[in-house]
Computed example of a mutant assay.
Amino acid sequence: MGKYSDNRAGVFVRQKGGYEAFIPHPLPPPDLVFDEGLLYLLSKADGALARLDGVTQVLPNPDLFVAMYIKKEALLSSQIEGTQASLQGVLEFEAHIRPKDDINEIQEVLNYIKALHHGIEKLEFSLLTLDLINEIHRFLIHGTRGSHKLPGQLRHVQNWIGLPGGTIQDALFVPPPPEQVPELMHDLERFIQNDDKTPRLIKAALIHAQLETIHPYLDGNGRMGRLMITFYLCSKGVLARPLLYLSYYLKRYREDYYTLLNDIRYQGNWEAWLAFFLQGVIDISNNSIETAKKIILLKETLIERLLENNISGVHAVKLIDTLFDRPIITIGQVTEELRISRQSATNLVGKFENIGILEEITGKERYKQYMFVDYVRIIEEGTRI
């Protein structure tokens, strides 16, 4: 096997099959150029993240906001890989309604949520090690259509990125040979844990790109790479809550995303990727701040709507709070949550339906389910296929 070409990101090496596989150099890249434009973006990104952290403190319930945002991120990250599920489908499935969406695709979204929660919990007392990364991957893939593709195990065959039905010779990119993957992942683990002076957001961008380039698993590499951004920033205390999710941005600029990753591999152009990543942090932080403000405003206007329609009492206000936690709900659940009679729950839900807060979504005479439509519409922005 002879060397094909080399740059500061890595080296292409010709393999026995006649194709060239890329072997990345360990991070950090040498001689990163932090010009005025990149430093400006880094400063803006840090500021936007700090504002996002601040605005979430005044939400009706920050943890519920985070929980819904995790669903949105799981959905968007899965959609980048071709999943066709919707936010309503995920919520319906969780509420034990049979959704119109493909159950297998919803399972992939739910696995992403489990993987994220598992990783965040473990990082409270554990380092972000290769063992933990593999463990998270097992949560991500287990029980889905990719479950035969070795959940939690590094690949032992060559993979490639290309058009469906294409061969490795036609590939857009061929990651490193399988025998190189364990050492490359240990190099990445060392970089993650090394407390150097690289700015945290820059480091998160480098980690994501390197994992995508190594492509260490047979399935789920894109989703794992996007999870790594959140895990790294949470592990370093940059985020108090897992609130930064770039999948909305990466889905919107998918072609640029893939092109810039390949520009690292073929040209060693790390700076263009870093600028794109930081712009994403700025855009998504600002978008999340606007979403948080819309939710605060929604809470205020709903209370006003109750008063305007002469719907008063502690149970009505408590139902508003419950809906932010459970945006799809049944009469039985209202009865249980508010500790009121079924008749009182039916009357209250009827009033909420009449003034447009709730919408019946099953079309059934019995076992009806109601959706908190305004809230779901705010959260689902950008998730429609």
Rank of each mutant, 00 (worst) to 15 (best):
V376S: 05
I295G: 12
A205K: 01
G222V: 09
I329D: 04
I113M: 10
L59C: 14
V317W: 03
E304T: 12
R305G: 09
G2L: 02
L278E: 01
E360Q: 15
I192R: 06
P30T: 13
S126E: 15
I106S: 00
L140C: 12
G17F: 03
P28I: 08
K44A: 13
F352Y: 09
G363D: 07
A21S: 15
I168S: 04
I103M: 07
E92G: 01
I320K: 10
I192A: 00
M1C: 09
V109R: 10
T259R: 15
K236W: 12
R226C: 06
G89V: 02
T213G: 03
A240W: 04
D6L: 15
E271N: 07
F12M: 05
V13Y: 11
G165M: 07
Y370H: 05
V181R: 01
H186G: 04
G89Y: 00
Y266A: 13
D46W: 11
A95N: 03
E336M: 05
R252L: 10
P176N: 05
L41W: 12
G2Q: 05
Y69G: 13
Y370E: 00
F324Q: 08
T383D: 07
I355Q: 04
A115Q: 04
P327R: 10
L116V: 11
S288P: 02
I328Q: 11
D374G: 09
G146T: 08
L338Q: 10
V33H: 09
Q279K: 11
Y217R: 03
L42G: 13
Y4A: 07
V58F: 15
R241T: 10
L302C: 04
G47H: 13
D31E: 14
